[in-house]
Nucleic acid binder design. Sequence first.
RNA 1: CGGGGCGUGGCUCAGCUUGGUAGAGCGCUUCGUUCGGGACGAAGAGGUCGCACGUUCAAAUCGUGUCGCCCCGACCA
Length: 510
Amino acid sequence: MRVCLGIADAYEGPMQSPGEAGPVMSEALARDVVKEIPPKAADLSAWYTAACLKAELVSYSPVRGCVVLRPYGFGLWENLQKHLDERFKATGHENAYFPLFIPESLLVREAEHVEGFAPEVAWVTQGGSEKLTERLAIRPTSEAIIGVMYAQWIESYRDLPVLINQWSNVVRWEKATRPFLRTMEFLWQEGHTAHASAEEAREETLRILELYRDFAENVAAIPVYVGRKSASERFPGAVETFSIEALMPDGKALQSGTSHDLGQNFAKAYDITFVDADRAIKHAYTTSWGVSWRMLGGLIMVHGDDRGLRIPPRMAPIEAVVIPIVRSNDDRAVEASRATAERLRKAGFRVRVDERDAQPGWKYSEWDLRGVPVRIEIGPRDVDAQTVVLARRDRERDQPGQRQSVALAELPGTLRELLEDIQRSLHSQAKAHLDAHTFVAPDRAEFFRLCKERAGMVDIAWCERPECEAHVKAETTATTRVLRALDEPAAVCLVCGEPAKVRAYFAQSY
RNA sequence: CGGGGCGUGGCUCAGCUUGGUAGAGCGCUUCGUUCGGGACGAAGAGGUCGCACGUUCAAAUCGUGUCGCCCCGACCA
């Protein structure tokens, strides 16, 4: 398969003399830059867009606000799906699919819900040449259509709980476009469950929250804060919303997964009732929860560096890329690479051989840019010695241990350990960033300063009053991200001095 | 939706002020030499200048509109 980067300017640095090369890099070559993308720290937005495009995750399309998810990007999405889906199945959920179109009369039944989504709903008003008598919303989320179906399916407490998930696309009329973070159409999963009691629904909401946290930390290697959302940040129509929040390198928070306890609000709006064991007719308690491809945006920003993406092994479409190094009089490396890749595939690794007619160095840079965790170099010396060279993407080019020579016989075991080590290392690098950018604000002035300067997650005791939050937002543009239990009952709100009810992380957000 | 910027071969951009019939570098194709961190030579291909309307003998260039993208804010996953 042919992969073309848009630009690949001539490399301007000094060249390493052929034959001299080995695991030791010259200092000049250790510059960790790549010409396709700007330095990450200088302008995160520009870096992010370039990285997504040049790594061939997405392309902009002729459709405003919509991107094309290219095969490599879809590979990332598939891995997210795989890991979440197996967790959903393990907790008793099943997949189903509901219609894309939602009649207006259904959507408007839950008042807060419609009001919340009204500004971003896309409407179909015409079919063929005929005007529709009733507008059809293109789903911004599926509580309405699913609620109506649950009302039909649920009769008795014996039918509960209903635990269904849907993998789908949704549309929200956005005005700006950023790959994964903000597009009019996006991919996600939405879980919708119905339960016989409030307690059970709350348990489900928290079970999924923990599932999301586990996925973010252990698969995407993104450390997150977990908790309840404030009233203003709550899902329209929910009794309570919980979320996981990640911190981006620019100090802004990214809500990466949400889980809603909908109480009986939607059951009442859509008439989801059941006859309980005590023969009384009751409204069910429902939940909904979702993760979108936005989490991929978070993964890219959190782990990437000046050379491009760094994908955690468990999410990587390609875990290791094999690069044969041939000489004009010696192309044994090609066969050796194929054989090695085949062996690794049989051992369960996701491996690709790059046999393109290009310079090895050029390929190194390209696969660095695309974030493949491990590169396997196989040259004539390796063929003779029955070894390969492993290079790890999570370390700088001049860092000790970035490259190592491994005997062929030990390759699968060493690669397995190396991938696990990279997975851990990316998480701990991200965790170090989160810790370094989490502040317990000592006083009001410092709190405002940290929020305004986008320092990161700012932790305070808070009164939980909407007007207090609005005041902070007006002054600093920061909002509450998640709330958690108060540690000292006597604490007062750092902002307004009223009695505190919770501890809250404030941050600017995406 | 406000404020600013930008749309010219695949990519990055020059040309626009002072209208005269389109350029560079990289990439791409073929052949040869190369290949352990972005190779080199030779020969080629490729653009209705985002789109529409207007001004003009003549528009990439001037005007109006429109679509899209980027950055900064307001809204959201």
